[in-house]
């Protein structure tokens, strides 16, 4: 009887210690799979928009992702709905689309079609208009607008400026 309770105690103690060890090593394993600090801090990208051509898509790279920058022509702006214009970034009096160029379905890069001023994703046939709003399934949501800050005619990607904060407040950015 005395022996049995001693064995029971040993079993429980062994179980508890190994349980703590198992949880601790799982945590270490999880952390080892985390993005490295150098990757996570993959800073900020500055883009000068003064030389942009109207209706010609510029693709920049930020945190390994393509960023679509599209200067709109006055005709395009005039034909836009309010919903579309709300997503425009105004730099130096010109309307720009700034968005992460990954389809919100599964992350393919849609291509820009100059004539119809829209984006078509070749993977599964999704479409976005010139403001990045999804117009045909399967993408469930508009192209994502990255954090940006306007600084004269340049835009800093990765930093949240007042214009970005305003878009976020009005619910344009999830």
């Amino acid at each position: 009887m005395e022996n049995e309770s001693r064995r029971g105690f040993m079993g429980k103690a062994f179980g508890a210690v190994s349980g703590v060890g198992a949880v601790a090593s799982l945590y270490a394993m999880k952390r080892s799979w985390d993005p490295l600090p150098s990757v996570a801090a993959a800073g900020f990208t500055k883009v000068d928009l003064s030389a942009a051509e109207p209706n010609a898509l510029v693709v920049e790279k930020w945190r390994g992702k393509p960023i679509f920058i599209l200067k709109k022509t006055p005709e395009m702006v005039a034909a836009q709905t309010e919903e579309m214009t709300a997503r425009d970034v105004i730099v130096g009096g010109e309307n720009f689309l700034i968005a992460i160029g990954l389809c919100t379905h599964l992350g393919c890069i849609p291509s820009y079609r100059k004539d119809s001023t829209d984006f078509l994703c070749a993977c599964h046939g999704g479409k976005f208009d010139s403001s990045g709003i999804d117009t045909q399934l399967p993408p469930p949501s508009p192209l994502v607008i990255p954090p940006f800050k306007i600084d004269g005619t340049t835009v800093v990607l990765g930093e949240e400026g007042p214009e970005y904060a305003k878009m976020k407040e009005s619910g344009l950015i999830a």
Binding site: K30, W33, P35, V39, A42, K65
Partner: peptide
């Protein structure tokens, strides 16, 4: 977390 990066890269 699965990728170890924002996009598929070295990690």
């Amino acid at each position: 977390w699965i990728r170890g990066d924002y996009v598929p890269a070295q990690a």
